[in-house]
């Protein structure tokens, strides 16, 4: 049997609206993945360190406050610094179309906007992570 996919669900920034992050964490767990939820107010440093320690294949960031253009590039930069470019970074939240495009060009694998189905998120992660 293959090893379950390990995912870090993280909530960066000052915002406390964690309904989405919690639902995603539960849905990924129900889909058979191993999920670590960081809790609130994580800095990019804390997130990347947690990802390293927990040896995850995927990081999911939930951002609703509009701070994504400051936070996400910093996470990508840290992943590169630590040689963790094989970790898939996905972002969910209130991300306008043009910002979503720009984040994808910088290295984010996918941006899930409001209304994205849980199914589509699970499928995307499964198809993008190599089976080990």
């Amino acid at each position: 049997m293959s090893r379950p996919i390990r995912v870090l669900v993280a909530k960066p920034g000052l915002d406390g609206h964690d309904r989405g992050a919690k639902i995603i964490a539960r849905a990924l767990r129900d889909a058979g993945m191993e999920v670590i939820y960081t809790g609130l107010r994580q800095t990019p440093d804390m997130i990347v360190n947690a990802a390293l320690q927990e040896d995850v294949q995927v990081i999911g960031l939930s951002i609703l406050s509009g701070a994504h253009n400051a936070i996400v590039p910093r996470v990508l930069e840290l992943l590169r610094e630590k040689g963790m470019t094989d970790v898939m970074l996905v972002v969910g939240g209130i991300i306008p179309d043009e910002d979503a495009e720009s984040l994808k060009q910088q290295g984010v694998a996918a941006v899930f906007q409001p209304g994205a189905s849980l199914d589509s998120i699970v499928t995307f992660i499964r198809s993008g992570v190599p089976v080990v």
Partner: peptide
């Protein structure tokens, strides 16, 4: 905005990207 709600001034490291957004 979120820095005000959390008791941080603009310019605090945790306020980065959040000033005036919400």
């Amino acid at each position: 905005d979120l820095p005000t709600l959390m008791g941080y001034d603009a310019g605090h490291p945790l306020s980065e990207g959040e000033v005036g957004k919400c």
